[in-house]
């Protein structure tokens, strides 16, 4: 708490005196995310979610670009999670600004792949220490966030997206973006920078339901009635694109390849499902996919590790309690 107050007091100084933000540690970052109300045993970010499972039906279109076996024609099962942004595992679903889809392909004892995707296609900032300042500004209120964005012109594309984004009435009708870029590595060792997106195959209108679990209940009912399907579409960078800058989308004209479909056929409450134990660290990659040097991507891995350690240890020591909805 003290740290937070100091950080809040110092924020304006930092903004005025220098363009380079103060370096923060993974621990400070996760302290900021979890805030003052810690929910033992839960994720420090995207604490509220629902486990899903299903399969990736690969059409083989991407197999020339990556030697990862998941892209051969065929079916790979996954465990996943649909979640909302925030530190509170009982928060109202419809109030959260960001929704997420995470997937884990447990391919073999030596091949694992974790993916963590969000509704925004780009980040507002390009590196983690500035991202910390962005979260501080969000917590400080509308005036601070307005000031932050005015001082960070790199947030232009993010703001343009946010201005036109309308949250839909279902997890099934959202678009989930890799945000960061990765390299596909093919049989010949050729590298191709890509981003990807899970595109919904249904449209669901915005809802004003009062239910705090509106999205979870909606998706559970929808999946019980039939599969929920997304098209997995990759965008290939060309030489002009910067794969290490998550604030800039690549032009629409870039080659796109649909690798297949993500099919969700089951949902389970997160504490009963297989997703709760998983750290959806986007740097757990199989052979045939590699991390770019994108500073945000690298930092996600470090911050997730700290969050995971905290909640895993809390679970081991028996501190996890299912909070009541308030």
């Amino acid at each position: 708490m003290k740290k937070l107050i100091w950080a809040l007091l110092l924020t304006p100084l930092i903004g005025q005196t220098t363009e380079v933000p103060v370096n923060v540690t993974a621990q400070q970052f996760v302290d900021l995310q979890q805030g003052n109300a810690v929910y033992p045993g839960f994720r420090r970010a995207h604490a509220k979610g629902i486990c899903v499972s299903g399969e990736f039906r690969s059409n083989g279109q991407l197999s020339d670009y990556s030697k990862a076996p998941v892209f051969q024609p065929g079916v790979t099962p996954f465990t996943g999670r649909l979640s909302i942004a925030g530190n509170n595992p009982t928060a109202p679903d419809l109030k959260a600004p960001v929704r997420s889809l995470a997937l884990s392909f447990s391919i073999s004892s030596t091949e694992q792949w974790r993916l963590a995707m969000n509704t925004p296609p780009v980040m507002a900032v390009a590196e983690p220490h500035t991202f910390y300042q962005q979260i501080l500004a969000i917590q400080a209120g509308p005036a601070a966030i307005k000031q932050f964005f005015s001082e960070h012109p790199e947030s232009k594309e993010f703001l343009a997206w946010a201005a036109q984004y309308k949250a839909s009435g279902s997890f099934a009708s959202e678009t989930y973006n890799s945000i960061n870029a990765f390299y596909l590595i093919n049989q010949n060792g050729k590298k191709q920078a890509v981003r990807w997106v899970m595109q919904p195959t249904v449209t669901v209108a915005t809802t004003d339901a009062q239910d705090v679990d509106a999205l979870q209940n909606e998706i559970a009912n929808r999946v019980a009635a039939g599969n929920v399907v997304f098209d997995w579409v990759f965008t290939l960078a060309d030489a002009a694109d910067d794969e290490n800058n998550a604030t800039k989308a690549w032009p629409d004209s870039r080659q796109k390849i649909t690798a297949g479909q993500i099919v969700i056929n089951n949902t389970t409450a997160q504490l009963e499902g297989g997703c709760h134990a998983i750290n959806f660290d986007p740097l757990v990659l199989p052979t045939g996919i590699e991390a770019t040097a994108d500073p945000i991507l690298r930092a996600r891995s470090s911050a997730y590790a700290e969050s995971y350690r905290r909640r895993a240890t809390e679970q081991l020591t028996g501190a996890l309690k299912e909070p009541e909805n308030d």
Binding site: S106, Q112, A277, R309, A312, L316
Partner: peptide
């Protein structure tokens, strides 16, 4: 060159134990 094997499914309790 090669990869050391890991569990197919996460065991968060054992992870926490060995992490600590």
């Amino acid at each position: 060159w090669f990869r050391l094997p890991a569990a197919l499914n996460v065991n968060i309790y054992n992870y926490a134990l060995f992490r600590e």
